[in-house]
């Protein structure tokens, strides 16, 4: 399935986009998604290990399965304040 991923800060800067598409198998975990993301968007490699994956505005763990129709976002460590 095709996942549209929101990107922020340096992740958005490296790809030149605020949203990208990532193709994963149905039932893919967050870990699977990370692999697919890095393979399909190698420009994210410099920060791939530090990216957070948020599912519907919640921090995810690598074992979680990506639900269909969820809002997915990827971003490096936060620096607000």
């Amino acid at each position: 399935m095709k996942i549209t991923v929101k990107l922020f800060a340096r992740a958005s800067q490296l790809t030149g986009a605020s949203e990208i598409d990532v193709e994963v198998d149905a039932g893919a975990s967050v870990a699977d998604f990370r692999e697919a993301l890095e393979a399909q968007h190698p420009e994210l490699k410099p920060i791939a290990g530090s990216l957070f994956v948020a599912i519907d505005s919640e921090y995810s763990s690598d074992e979680q399965v990506i639900p269909e129709f969820a809002q997915i976002a990827c971003f490096p460590p936060v620096s607000g304040g």
Partner: peptide, 29 residues
């Protein structure tokens, strides 16, 4: 807030360069 809330700052330095601030970005998340 500084640990959990997804907000980011970009430094616009006086030498003309810019830099997104990502504490610990070299380490796994």
């Amino acid at each position: 807030l500084k640990i959990r809330v997804p907000i980011w700052k970009k430094e616009n330095w006086s030498d003309g360069t810019t830099e997104w601030v990502h504490p610990g970005a070299d380490a796994p998340s």
